[in-house]
Design a protein around this nucleic acid. Structure first.
Lengths: 343, 343
DNA sequence: CCGGCGTCTGTGAGCGTTCACAGTAGAGAA
DNA sequence: TTCTCTACTGTGAACGCTCACAGACGCCGG
């Protein structure tokens, strides 16, 4: 039973205790804690030993008070709750970002802005400086929160290119157009010629690009775009189901559908099977995202994989860089065709 | 252009600025901020006006430094990531807790412990006092994290009764047994007699209780329990599908299945339909949870609603009470039968 | 021997808040 | 009047850390 142990038993050890234990000053301990520059190897060693011995953990509040940073970041989702409940992509992204941040020892604050009230509260919270930066996920266009945060100068990285925010905000996105092209080429290579499309929301760059990829490949193949084959969706399962029904009604002779999200593709599958069309024999279905939903259905979806791990890692990297003073950046990541049973 | 405005333009206003603006002392401002006891109405008024005028927001780090509280809580999910990706119940709970906490102005830190490494890191983070308490979601038994946290004296509230932690940890749960009984009675009332069951994990109280409810009602109705009608599951969709197949193989004459989770019920539906059984004509299917999954399938699931909103609210209430010094508590909430198309 | 430089270390100040305490004023009781 | 009690207010002193600064030491070139 040592003095140092008995003495400060009840309350956690401070940097002061570590300094005393290691026989150095607070300043030296602090320097070791923050990168260890200008510290002799001997002191370095002694401090680390003292930290282990005392079980010291830095008091983040004291640190933040003086640095002005909170060393935490917000994950902001501005989607209606139904979307959050039905689309597992959010979970994948959430997990990826949590993991990426954990390796930097930065906690993630979850902010769900489903209602106007929450939106306001969250905006206030963020602009008050309670987080150093924000990872933004919002599939819909013209997000007022994003605009406010940008104006307030809060470091911000969006998932997917945001609409109408100019080049001022960073984003990380998959190569939507390229992915769409791959899928449509794949459908073509299977001999499909009457290829319908259920688009994403066309007020978002992602939705527009995926449709553009579809049209581009068909044109290159010398197939004229039939507007009856193009029906709008909003990424929700219900809109996929409705889209497929509309497609079936407008163009009963389709032999394939390119669906701009896996969740919508689930709906498409449901509608197709209800209409007695076999997948993939009668109609091939290609999705987009490679969300967990893709393998939860039967037949398992052929889809375009968005590299979620890389997307989350890049979002975190770009955000931390921006917090460190760097300029906003846009990162486009390649996609990959995943062949399964629906084509 | 007033002096007070021009002076402190760059950096946010402090409690001191507010005090000067209002013509009172820091202490008085602080008292207003924390409930306003022992403050004259006039001072109260002046301080509030000054806060509005200066746009003051409390510096949480300074506050935490002295109070020793972090005024934030952790939401800890100790599930493999596949479970997190496929089960929308987590999202519902996450949203409920976020919302409940927001009304207390307490941020939620998301902690996903999928791997052993993360488990360790998170435990260290929590026991270091970086959060005041933890909302725990972990469907599997014998969770080492929970045990460690309990031993460290961290305020903890679990969702669902945790296995083997004794009465020492708070939890909020729906009345599993009662819900199961309602469902089986409902099945009985529809004239079903050969009722199979796909159970939840039987190393958790929830799984055990739901099965117990099933057996209890059948016994009361004078129907002998046929063990061929009881197959195990683990709440995952895949286990539901496998369970239904096994049921079909062991007891082809079933006319109903009580499934211990909606997600498994999705799998059951898939297997049943693949086997050519019509739902609900040939076989009725009853789920449990009323998860978003229940209405995403066809036919829409008859299920037992867990009152998620109340569950999250209670979890937060109990946790905050416990942080405030109260004793651990157990809350059991009533369920409700939701009749849809699968029975 | 001096001066300068680069490496390393200790020290005081201060970040913005809360808390304990001391103190004031006014009302009511003795 | 004087004393006590209650309602309210102001004032240091922390909380645990980082940062700027000053100083010590060894080494080099003049």
């Amino acid at each position: 039973m040592t003095m140092s142990n008995t003495g400060g038993r009840r309350r956690p050890p401070t940097i002061h205790d570590v300094a005393r234990e290691a026989g150095v000053s607070r300043g030296t301990v602090s320097r070791v804690l923050n990168g260890g520059h200008y510290v002799s190897p001997a002191a370095q060693e002694a401090v680390n030993a003292a930290i282990r011995k005392t079980g010291y953990v830095v008091n983040r509040h004291a640190r933040s008070l003086i640095t002005g940073r909170s060393d935490s970041i917000g994950f902001l989702l501005t989607e209606p709750q139904e979307r959050f409940f039905e689309d597992p992509n959010f979970n994948v992204l959430l997990r990826g970002c949590t993991q990426a941040l954990a390796s930097h020892d930065v906690p993630l604050l979850l902010m769900l802005a489903g209602t106007e009230d929450e939106r306001r509260r969250i905006t206030r919270y963020i602009t008050a400086g309670h987080v150093d930066g924000v990872l933004l996920v919002s599939s819909h266009s013209g997000d007022p929160v994003a605009e406010e945060l940008r104006e307030a100068g809060v470091p911000l990285v969006a998932c997917g290119k945001p609409m109408g925010l100019g080049a001022k905000v960073s984003y990380v996105a998959a190569d939507d157009r390229d992915g769409a092209k791959d899928m449509v080429r794949h459908l073509l290579s299977q001999g499909r010629r009457r290829i319908g499309v259920v688009t994403g929301p066309l007020d978002t760059p992602g939705g527009v690009e995926r449709l553009a990829g579809y049209k581009e490949v068909l044109s290159e193949a010398g197939i004229e775009i039939d507007e009856k084959l193009v029906v709008p969706g909003d990424y929700s399962r219900a809109s996929g189901e409705a889209g497929a029904e509309r497609l079936l009604a407008q163009a009963a002779d389709i032999d394939a559908v390119f669906v701009a999200s896996d969740l919508m593709a689930q709906g498409v599958l449901t509608a197709l099977q209800r209409a007695g069309r076999r997948v993939p024999e009668d109609v091939a279905v290609g999705g987009f995202d490679d969300s967990p939903a893709a393998t939860a259905v039967s037949p398992a979806l052929t889809t375009i994989r968005q590299p979620w791990d890389r997307i989350s890692n890049e979002m975190v990297r770009v955000l931390l860089a921006q917090i460190g003073g760097e300029d906003p950046a846009a990162v486009i990541l390649p996609t990959e065709l995943v062949k399964r049973d629906s084509t």
